[in-house]
Design a protein around this nucleic acid. Sequence first.
RNA 1: GGGCGAAUAGCUCAGUCUGGUCCAGAGCGCCUGCCUUACAAGCAGGAGGUCGCAGGUUCGAAUCCUGCUUCGCCCACCA
Length: 888
Amino acid sequence: MSQKLDSRYDPAGIEAPMYRRWEEAGLFHVPAGQVERPYVISIPPPNVTGALHMGHGLNHTIQDVLIRWRRMQGFDAVWVPGTDHAGIATQNVVERELAKNGVSRWDLGREAFVEKVWDWVHEYGGQILEQQRAIGDSCDWERTRFTLDDGLSRAVREVFVRLYDKGLIYRGEYIINWCPRCRTALANEEVEHRDEPGKLYHIRYPSAVEGGQDLVVATTRPETMLGDTAVAVHPEDPRHAARVGQDLLLPLVGRLLPVIADEYVDLEFGTGALKVTPAHDPNDFEIGERHELPRVNVLEAEGTISGEAPEAYRGLDRFEARERIVEDLEAGGFLVEIEDHLHAVGHCYRCDTIIEPWLSEQWFVRMRPLAEPGLAAYREGRLRFHPEHFGKKYEHWMENIRDWCISRQLWWGHRIPVWYCEACGSEIVSRDDPTECPHCHGELVQDPDVLDTWFSSALWPFSTVGWPEETADLEALYPTDTLVTASEIIFFWVARMVMMGLEFMGELPFADVVINGTVRDHRGRRMAKSLGNGIDPLEVVERFGADAMRYTILSGASMGTDIQLNYQDLDAAFAVGRNFANKIWNAARFALPYLTEEDLATSPEDRELELADRWILSRFQSTAHEVTEALEAFRLHDAAAAVYQFGWGELADWYIELAKLRLGGARGDASRAAASTTLAHMLDGWMRLLHPIMPFVSEAIATRHPGRSEEDTIVRGPWPEPPDSWEDDAAEAAFAGLQELVGQVRNLRAAYGIDPSRQLTVLVRGAPPGLAGAMAAEGEGISRLARAVFQGADGLPAGPGAHAVLQSGAELFLPLADVVDVERELGRLEKELLRLESLLESSRARLDSPAFVEKAPAAVVEREREKQTSLAERRRLLVEKRRALGEG
RNA sequence: GGGCGAAUAGCUCAGUCUGGUCCAGAGCGCCUGCCUUACAAGCAGGAGGUCGCAGGUUCGAAUCCUGCUUCGCCCACCA
């Protein structure tokens, strides 16, 4: 109903159709074989069943800014998108769905279950790819990949076979991390340790020897005692030396346990006696190896007590068994003490179930040989992290790397390409599915396990572009340039990509790793489904636009730091970006009607430029450099701030305000033409600098320039590279003087509560040539901004009025007999005088110190002298005024 | 137990690597005044900070060094 509504920027109607146009025009796509000047980012593939969350919002915004900026610079920018099959996560999703109907995966059987997961993926998977379009991700969609694609699966097999042939993949029985709910092994990195209050149970193991002494051991997991096969003491422990070699009797089980000596035992802890359970503790496993102890596995895959245990406990869940055993120990008089005990408990990173260290046969990758080149690359500076300190994390992990358990007892994933011959027992590792044993023609059975999801992720930068085929894309798009990811993924993914890239491509997959922070709520908590404190990026896009979301995100956190967003008040959370988008829109709404086709075709330098024109061109020149440099250094936050400050604080607040008169023709045609041509270039340049960050609104405005249409997209640039000739220090200095002048008048007006509409007269005495010239050039303009007429004066009247002394030493006087009372003005002057006094004092102290004059660089001393002279002059003028005022 | 990071305005954060142009900036919030026809999602003005604490280096420290305190993260097999 009113114009106000129209003045608000409405992204909803603009963004989606614009994205469609971009995609249809193929602006994000570079055909294979035509990549000549590549800039490549391989996306961290989101889970195929996942939905976009704010973490993606942050991560993708950074990638898209880099990609769009390089594309505008003329690079063949390719952002390779795709999804990850995410073994456990996806399988869990489908299992949960089945469970609603009371069906388990075992009910269905392997083949049918995998079929179901594929159905699920085809139906619901990949929605995230659509959602990415909503936030503006300019991916090369024709290159979309999925980790279970045929091509990527071939790469997985190729890598497995080559590593196996090289002796870097082996199978063995070891203690691994077992999730009894997922019923699969996990890698060390997939276990999350949390300190939790627990109990430390002290249990007396009676001696089996006549007259021998009992030993008290301590454990946090009493149920594992069922699998004890020894008790260990330190070889130099005087308390127990005599007992080594004697047997103890395992309570509740009745097994004889030898007392052995092993240096692993900590003399300080408890009684110095350690129960040894080789099948359920990694350290005990090693002790067991050294002493050739039997391994008694008392747990089933689902976490219940196995047939190796006494009948009374078989089939009980591990925690039930714990309670029962504690009761029975107590009843039998074996329980000495129960202590409260805080200890780290491992949880499954996918389902949070408590992990059991469990003995089983698994496949492993020998990591140390792979890690060496990866470490060297980092230490030689070929692999760089941003911020730098994250490199230390990488280095430390690589230095202490342990073998990687890659087999998972899941059904969803890349099946391990190993077959066993039932007839002759051979183990066949093959790129293709063999039909019979090559040795004896016997029947083959494939290993039932699948590979860790991260195994295929590790190959992502080259498997997505064709490897192991030698494609044009592989040639052009590997290595990529920049990886953008979260710090918690450095071990899971970054390090492994580096190792695999070096091993199979002979080259790092990327040179720069940009680490983004975490998105948190306003209370600093990580956004999580379980906390219900998440923000849906799609809702943000709908309400405020993708641009507003992107700008808010970038402005909220500098490189590597976390960002806080209030999920309870989205209006407040995204106000920064929304307001900025609106400001941009309105600045353009004002400017565009004045511009002509000719303006953009004409170089500003061909017009009769005035001070304000030269000033804004100079400001733009320096802003463009600042933005480019910030982007080169991955300081996106600084780039965003610079574009904001230029556009709002300089172009809109000053240039446009001053240009209003000229654009209206008040100062003649030449002036009008200079203003409109300058404005056209500034608006266009600003939109281009802004485009990587806020692609939609910038494109909308840039294509609305007179003479342009939707066809004239800025998606492919060019990126602004203003000529050095636009730099103009003199104009900047003169203009700064004007800004100070206007600011002083506004300040005095506010200080005396003068009606904003009242036209003032301002007398200026002693303006240096630069300022005097500027006042002459922009007289009407600054009159408008200050609502005052400026007059040069040789002397200032003695009557009542408001005074100010500018930095240049020029004096400013507002003859305002009606509103200025002498007392108040004296107070104001006094305050200003005090300020100058204290500045002068510290300056003088410095210059009076011989040490400063001798040791500080000459330039610093010189600057200090100039400062003092100027301060002294300003003080002198103020003192004079005060006296005149006091006398008057 | 190791390692890393953070601490600057009421809030969220820049600035610290490369000490002087910073008696420290931005946005939000707050106070005052404005519907000045691009924008009230706006305009103008203003208040607000012992730069965590204690030492040290230096002519000079938010910035470099040492110690401490408080948060956060990562790694780690002390049962």
